[in-house]
Computed example of a mutant assay.
Amino acid sequence: MNRVVHPIEEESFRRLRARLDTSPFPPLTRAVVERVIHSAADLEYASDLVMDEADLVRAHAALHAGAPVVVDVEMVAAGITRRETVCRLRDAVAGPGLTRSAHAVRLAHAQVGPGALWVIGCAPTALEELLALDASPALVIGLPVGFVGAAESKAALRESGLPAVSNVSEKGGSAVAAAALNALLYHPAPDGTPSGKPEETL
């Protein structure tokens, strides 16, 4: 079943494109840029986001083939309405030199193994822990927010060479991280079928 787009969303994207020409971006990059901007009403993301179209194409194929989606916090999960996600934060505990978010990443990695899509929108320590693991992800959407560690963890993600969506600045957050994943979910698979369950409302 195709996703039903609310008229308010259609008008929002029309206004976005009237203010910003996104046509030079390749298809999946454009989809991610537009949906992130739409989620935050922040046009600066057009120049702040960093991604590679070839990575997105491979991640899109993995996602539509049923690859697991792992999130760092429930707020990210709440924004992803068309796919079940894995979040182990409730099971995690902090320890010496280990935050709950980092422990949750360890638990999730043990559960899903390689090939997952990781969506990190809150905790820089979650992203740092993921980079320390041999996770072999299909994609890392690394968009944690904050003045401590956020920009640095995203820079480390880009330096890692892993397939990724990140941004240069300190901004980010659960809503924009979920939006980046949703852009790949909403973009049709090569056979024209949508991914995940139909969405009831915006």
Rank of each mutant, 00 (worst) to 15 (best):
G97Y: 11
G97F: 06
G97T: 13
G97V: 11
L98I: 14
L98H: 02
L98N: 00
T99Y: 02
R100M: 10
S101Y: 11
A102N: 06
A102E: 06
A102K: 09
H103S: 13
A104M: 08
A104F: 04
V105N: 00
V105Q: 02
V105E: 02
V105P: 00
V105R: 00
V105Y: 02
R106N: 07
R106Y: 01
L107N: 09
A108G: 11
A108K: 10
H109P: 00
H109F: 13
A110T: 09
A110N: 06
Q111G: 00
Q111R: 14
V112P: 03
V112F: 04
G113C: 09
P114A: 14
G115V: 12
G115S: 13
L117E: 02
L117N: 01
W118P: 03
V119D: 01
V119K: 10
V119N: 02
V119E: 10
I120L: 15
I120Q: 05
I120N: 03
G121F: 05
A123Y: 01
A123M: 08
P124R: 09
P124M: 10
T125G: 04
T125S: 15
T125V: 09
T125C: 03
A126F: 09
L127Y: 08
E128R: 14
E129M: 14
L130A: 03
L130F: 08
L130T: 03
A132R: 15
L133K: 08
L133N: 10
A135V: 14
S136D: 15
S136F: 04
P137A: 10
P137R: 05
P137V: 09
P137W: 07
A138F: 03
L139D: 03
I141H: 02
G142C: 10
L143Y: 09
P144K: 12
P144Q: 13
V145I: 15
V145A: 11
G146R: 12
G146K: 10
F147N: 03
F147P: 00
F147V: 15
V148M: 07
V148D: 07
V148N: 02
V148F: 14
G149K: 13
A150E: 05
A150G: 04
A151R: 14
A155L: 14
A155M: 11
A156M: 13
L157E: 12
R158E: 14
R158C: 02
S160V: 09
S160C: 06
G161E: 11
G161N: 11
L162V: 12
L162I: 06
L162N: 01
L162G: 00
P163D: 08
P163F: 04
P163L: 04
A164P: 01
A164W: 03
V165R: 00
S166T: 15
N167M: 05
V168K: 07
S169D: 08
K171N: 08
K171G: 03
K171V: 09
G172L: 04
G173D: 08
A175E: 01
A175N: 15
A177H: 10
A177T: 07
A177M: 07
A179K: 07
A180R: 06
A180W: 03
A180C: 07
L181M: 15
L181C: 15
L181N: 00
L181T: 01
N182L: 14
N182F: 00
N182M: 15
A183T: 09
L184Q: 03
Y186I: 08
Y186A: 05
Y186K: 03
H187S: 14
H187Q: 11
P188K: 06
P188G: 12
